[in-house]
Design a protein around this nucleic acid. Structure first.
Lengths: 336, 336
DNA sequence: GAAAGCTGTCGAAGCGCTTCGACAGCCTAT
DNA sequence: ATAGGCTGTCGAAGCGCTTCGACAGCTTTC
């Protein structure tokens, strides 16, 4: 391995000069800079990460924690993770992938060992057990999701409450009075995952304001579970004509079941989904939906974290405004 | 931050002794060990990762490269990534997540900087541009997937050729003579991704041996693309009664279209899928399928890599034998 | 009872980098 | 002309750990 010292010798300068060329922390004459850069290229020099981390107490790594709960919709997570990794690179950081397996102690380990300069936590529960640990370390962190108590924390998330409201409004405008909400798997609610509950809050609040009836049912997803759930809903509220679906794996089953029962979408019933764009577009009926902006969430989280690492910006809750895209699964708005 | 020296002082021993307690590389008396361990606990000591990496030239990190091609089926990738991360932890390694954005140079950067001790490459093409770079570094690596030339490389993958053969055999036994293969998106074949071509080889070879007719069509996935593809297939080979699907996002559309056309599954046509277990089980018709063992691939890759890092084991191609699970989408075997 | 071999511990060197203070040489303002 | 300020470079200290050789104090062996 080529070292700084070898580059310095090759370029006929001191080691510190090479270091300053690399970091740009002191001014260097054009001449010297070019000589050094040339040596770096010719020798194929790469700074040693460990040495750098030791000397500067900065690893240029950010940790990304994805607690692995199998009931979570995985592709969204993946999309976020990828966005985090690529955005991090544009700021000179690499990303360390931590799964839930290790439990909350991973926070302590990573912070304590200086492995990562900061961390991003995904899939945050309302009362997440990682938060106390996070608060006791000094490392900057950003949450993707919203816990119950956000004091002293930086969070990035879709505004799920507004999302819920938006869905209800849309259906109300289409003239629907009885609305059913197909939610995430029961376990998601039992865990008190923020986004699910906040969506529900938004749905309920706006439904009340607009005088609509709202029925919420968690659903495991898949055909069998969806069939049972739908039967129960229609049994309890036969007049249901509006559906809000917040469960990736229930979308297609729902459409198939409705079709099978002779309920045409969007003529008889309207469906609004909260899901990634791609799912909405690829479904058998192109779905009116509020997109879950996974990429943007990942990107924003990194940018918030980098800002904190640079000593800029403080604690902040960044909520992304939802956008509803009308497609083929909800009827046309009645003429005004 | 607590340092080794502070632990040593607290325990009344030298720094090297603490180091040996930690690494177990020299024998330590029970008494001393316990004193040291107690100090470690009381002070909340975590070894500094950078210092460790510098002194030992081992980072205890493995890099996982996921080139981001949007036409790839993402959830499988995610599952592999998660399996890699958790398995790595059980061997004392952390995982660095690299995306394709950075290009093949990432290999050089990571190897050159000593950031990672070894790497795992996913989504390997037959003639992957990362391979030359990989061969010129000395860092151990494991590929998930199979390139054209595997000399000097360790690879882990499902035996896709055998998988193809298995699917054809299954359909042959069910009495199907005209078989259509719904493949991955065209881009996947244009890229010469190993798994897609190997599956096709297996399908074709066995079909020839068994005297079946085989029609292969790539497909983008989604309803519209699938509708076009299916129409063309049935136009060209109206007698097609067996389908092999190797494209996640074409599965459900295919089932819906067949249903819509009055072709009953499995009475009129049989469908065999090559996909993750979960997809097969959650489909509207429970699918006879060969599972893509994402978790096992991730696990095996890490284990191969760790073996190499420990100086055990050499270059090896590990092919996982495919297993076909009969479910509801293929007819009963005819009585013998 | 001397030689040889263990076992458990220590001291010191060094891994490759960053960063601080020093300072030579030059320019500007008085 | 002289003090003061820049600019560009260097030397040296030190980040926290691993690891090598040394060695004191034992036990074993013939």
């Amino acid at each position: 391995m080529v070292t700084l010292a070898e580059v310095a010798q090759h370029a006929g300068v001191s080691a510190s000069t090479v270091s300053y060329v690399l970091s740009g922390k002191r001014s260097i004459s054009v001449n010297t800079r070019q000589r050094v850069e040339r040596s770096i290229r010719e020798l194929g020099y790469h700074p040693n990460a460990g040495a750098r981390a030791l000397a500067s107490s900065r690893s240029n790594i950010i940790a990304l924690m994805i607690p692995l709960r199998t009931d979570m919709y995985v592709p969204v997570m993946m999309e976020i993770a990828i966005a985090v990794a690529t955005t991090a690179r544009t700021h000179g950081y690499d990303v360390l992938l931590l799964t839930g397996e290790e439990g909350p102690d991973a926070v302590r380990r990573v912070a304590g060992s200086g492995l990562a300069d900061g961390m991003i936590l995904m899939d945050v529960e309302l009362d997440d057990e990682r938060l106390p640990l996070l608060r006791e370390t000094d490392r900057p962190a950003v949450l993707i999701g919203l816990p119950a108590d956000t004091t002293g924390l930086t969070c990035v998330d879709l505004d799920f409450k507004a999302t819920g409201a938006l869905c209800v409004e849309h259906l109300a405008k289409r003239g629907h009075h009885d609305i059913a909400v197909i939610g995430e798997a029961p376990a998601v609610y039992e865990r008190h995952t923020g986004f699910a509950e906040r969506t529900l809050d938004g749905l309920r609040a706006r439904a009340r304001e607009l005088g609509l009836r709202l029925l919420h049912r968690p659903c495991e997803g898949g055909y069998d579970a969806m069939a049972v759930t739908l039967a129960r809903i229609l049994d309890e509220r036969p007049g249901t004509t509006g559906f809000v679906v917040q469960n990736e794996s229930a979308v297609e089953p729902l459409l198939a079941l409705l079709r099978q029962q002779g309920r045409a979408v969007p003529e008889d019933v309207s469906v609004v989904a909260i899901c990634p764009e791609q799912v909405a577009v690829q479904a058998s009926v192109r779905l009116t939906s509020v997109a879950v902006p996974a990429q943007e969430m990942g990107r924003l989280a990194v940018e918030q974290l980098v800002a904190k690492l640079d000593g800029r910006g403080g604690d902040e809750v960044v909520l992304i405004a939802p956008e509803l895209t009308v497609r083929a699964s909800s009827g046309p708005a009645p003429a005004q």
